[in-house]
């Protein structure tokens, strides 16, 4: 049974028709067509699917899409301002915080949420905030440095 719904993603309202058990991850990638959000473990372990719901990071692979109606969803595509990269995106590029890139959208979303909540985090706070995001290349040092650099850049 399909349910008609509207999902608000990155400031746009998308009318969609969703199965009751569709995940938010599938709705974003398959129905809306924003493929920046990645399918990793698809089991709430790796954080590749991280999005923000009303400003708070959530694993979209284990969130029912229909529960997100009425909320503001932000994906990695929503972090930039038009063609202008956000501070955290620029810092990941400048500091080499990207290796294969698969975890990067989730890392960016978690880091973005952290900096909005805590503009001047310690390295320990950064590592804790990113602890739900796994990097299979194990490039954590540069990722943490990128978040520190972004915090400095926006201070």
């Amino acid at each position: 049974m399909k349910h008609a719904a509207t999902l608000n993603v990155n400031g746009m309202a998308y009318p969609v028709e969703l199965e009751g058990d569709a995940t938010l991850l599938d709705a974003i990638r398959e129905d809306i067509g924003l493929t920046g959000t990645k399918t990793g473990c698809d089991d709430c372990e790796c954080g590749a699917c991280m999005v923000m719901i009303d400003g708070r990071p959530v694993n979209s692979c284990t969130y029912l899409a229909l529960q997100a109606q009425g909320s503001e969803i932000t994906t990695v595509e929503g972090l930039a301002d038009g063609d202008e990269l956000s501070a955290i995106q620029s810092a990941f590029l400048d500091q080499g915080g990207v290796q294969c890139g698969y975890c990067t959208p989730g890392m960016l979303v978690s880091a973005h949420a952290l900096l909005r909540h805590n503009p001047d985090p310690s390295e320990e706070e950064i590592r804790l905030a990113l602890s739900g995001n796994l990097c299979r290349c194990t490039g954590y040092a540069k990722i943490a440095e990128a978040v520190m650099a972004a915090a400095k850049a926006t201070a």
């Binding site: 009751g20 058990d21 089991d43 709430c44 692979c61 284990t62 969130y63 029912l64 229909l66 529960q67």
Partner: peptide, 23 residues
Amino acid sequence: VAGGSDLIVQARGGRDLPANVVA
């Protein structure tokens, strides 16, 4: 279903999602 994380992880583990979900 409240947050949904347990329910969906269980469904991935082979258990069917219930046919009728009340959020």
